[in-house]
Amino acid sequence: MKIFVCIKQVPDTETKIKLKPDGSGVDFAGVKWVMNPYDEFAVEEAIKTREAGKATNVTVLSVGPKTRIVETLRTAMAMGADDAIAIDAADDLDSISTARALAAAIKAEGEYGMVLTGKLAIDDNAASVGQMVAEFLNIPHATVVSKIELADSATVERETEGGTKEILELKKPMLIAANKGLNMPRYASLPGIMKAKKKPIKELTLDGLGVTATATRVKHVAYQLPAEKPPVKMLDGDFSAQAKTLAQLLRSEAKVL
């Protein structure tokens, strides 16, 4: 059984975000790129499944500027993925075009048992590509998954609101979007990094996958930095005076009580 893992390269959480002067987008110069944290759980789960003898091959796929995303694909292969597919595209490709490209690339590879990805990417927070890939592949999906038991089908546990858990059974093949708690992603070992350099990366284009510019459905525009917050109002006095002042301010000034 083959497993596909869809991963995204995103700016590191600690990176400062600068905007282009005309507000048309983000100025990525000097940004440190990392694998989307939720996709690390997906990669780890795929490798663990193969190590448990339940899968034969793990292929990682990514969509984005080719020369940049290969770094993240190499990281996934250094963790243990077998091979990779890089789909060259602009940074700001929308979710539906991204999903069409990923689904077409997976279809072209033939039989598979499972597709894994993260529950969302921390850059655009769309949380959409997984479900869309599942729709285009016509397979069931589950998102925000914190536990997977794989047999003839997959039994998954997903968290919803207020600590409620749903247990779903999904027929193979299925798409699962990982949440934190699914596993502890491993670090790439030095031998792993050396081996990854020799693992194959297949390069594909959007045109080759039949995804054209006319498939775009939404764009982000008019970027803005958040408004400066007024400076914090520090409350003086001993603890009982501080508590009293705070309660009054919350009620009469901020009007939130």
Binding site: D124, N125, T216, H220, P226
Partner: peptide
């Protein structure tokens, strides 16, 4: 409008869909 990059900026959405 929606926050991007963990709230470090926001952007407007411009729909190009006919749906």
């Amino acid at each position: 409008r929606r926050p991007l990059f963990s709230g470090k900026c926001t952007a407007g959405v411009s729909f190009t869909t006919s749906g």
